[in-house]
Design a protein around this nucleic acid. Structure first.
Lengths: 235, 235
DNA sequence: GAGTGGTCTAGACCACTTC
DNA sequence: AAGTGGTCTAGACCACTCT
């Protein structure tokens, strides 16, 4: 592991394990250089990751300090996470395939996936449940050129691990749009919602490390089971 | 302005003005060093900001490339933005004060603002409209110690500009939780929603540059007028 | 082999805070 | 004045991609 990532994860561990407590001052950069046997720039690079994550804040002339952290009851999904679910819960996750077919790309889908209209795409509609309880309805379109060989077998497990382990593709980034929406009859049927109960929809385009969009998806979550957390820092 | 920020904003301008087009290769680091008369680390620091924003991607051995960008019809609010609205729209924004009073902090509010229960807090309930049309119902709690002197006068304008210009406080970061919710009768009344129409709620704790939380707010947006965009990069 | 970005160094100078 | 983090330099070496 790179030095700066080691410093980042080492300090992160100390914060989450409460070895470094909220409000507490963190050892200064020069001392950390000696502790980790590296240059100041490397310490800075590691610390910067902690700042971006909202775990610490730093003030010129004063030092670096641990920020206070929270806890919640719903399923929290950090905005940074790229996968839909898999890594975010240690509970048992099932996927029921509602629809799986090839389609001609519509104008909207073609634009998102940066392909031509009417190019073939996989259309995947899955109901994802945790401990047998429906949580999310996930509609996914994928580029058949980039991600060939999708089967029902792959879909019942994790698409992402197939892409990374079998196809050796590197997932690099994702654009997300979050909105609230009235539930449709389909939502109500599969998620067990009443007609007046809404969903939280995440529209996502996921990109490989070569900038190519390989997935365009719409995840409709039960409004009472999900919330998305994020942290932003001023430039 | 610092050199790396100049490089960042200069390249950003070239991308948004389509001087650098989607997919196009960006001049390599060494050449940029000469162009901007600086070291490689400085060029890197500027480019890194563009990567975080999803404007470019970089590949070892290949170069840096402009990512494709989108456009939308609703009001888009980048997740990075800290303010509620003010900067995100050039249209006329009005604030109607529905409630403004002092209250004893509840356990929940005290925890968020890191004060003691029953400490005094400002409670502010505002209806924010754009071009006369109600968009957001904003319930805000503020620490009276940190942000004294809040008046109806201040509230009808921007709280943020009062804090930054009058009190000279520096707003540094914010934690946000995004969720969908059924509209309450109050939501329906002020936002003009039908009973079955939902809201998009953003719960936010905003922090100063000394790590102190000064604001805890709940913004309930019309579901059909808002969506929140975000971009995430794998570490 | 030539070109690219990624990591890292060992300093320098500055701005800010506290004493 | 001493201590802190922020910016910047002018290199080094490595890993990766393409030819």
């Amino acid at each position: 592991m790179e030095k700066y990532k080691f410093i980042y994860s080492d300090l992160k561990n100390k914060i989450t394990n409460n070895v470094l407590k909220p409000g507490e001052k963190i050892t200064d950069e020069i001392s950390l250089c000696k502790e980790y046997d590296c240059s100041r720039m490397t310490v800075k690079k590691g610390m910067e990751l902690l700042v971006q994550e909202g775990l610490i804040y730093r003030k010129k002339g004063l030092g670096s300090f641990v920020m206070s952290h929270s806890d919640s009851s719903r399923i929290e999904i950090p905005e940074r996470e790229l996968s839909g679910l898999s890594k975010n819960t240690k509970q048992s996750l099932q996927s029921k395939i509602l629809d799986f077919r090839l389609e001609f790309a519509s104008a909207k889908i073609a634009k998102a996936l940066e392909i031509n209209q009417n190019d073939p795409v996989y259309k995947i509609n899955r109901l994802r449940s945790i401990n047998g309880r429906p949580h999310v309805l996930e509609l996914t379109y994928m580029n058949t050129q980039i991600t060939p060989g999708i089967t029902t077998e792959v879909l019942t497990h994790s698409i992402y691990s197939y892409l990374e382990n079998e196809l050796e593709l590197k997932i690099a980034s994702a654009k997300k749009i979050t909105r609230a929406d009235k539930s449709t009859e389909e939502d109500q049927k599969y998620l067990g919602l009443k007609p007046d109960e809404p969903v939280l929809e995440i529209e996502q385009i996921a990109y490989l490390d070569n900038g190519a969009p390989f997935e365009y998806s719409f995840s409709r979550h039960r409004y009472d089971l999900f919330e998305f957390t994020s942290f932003s820092v001023r430039l």
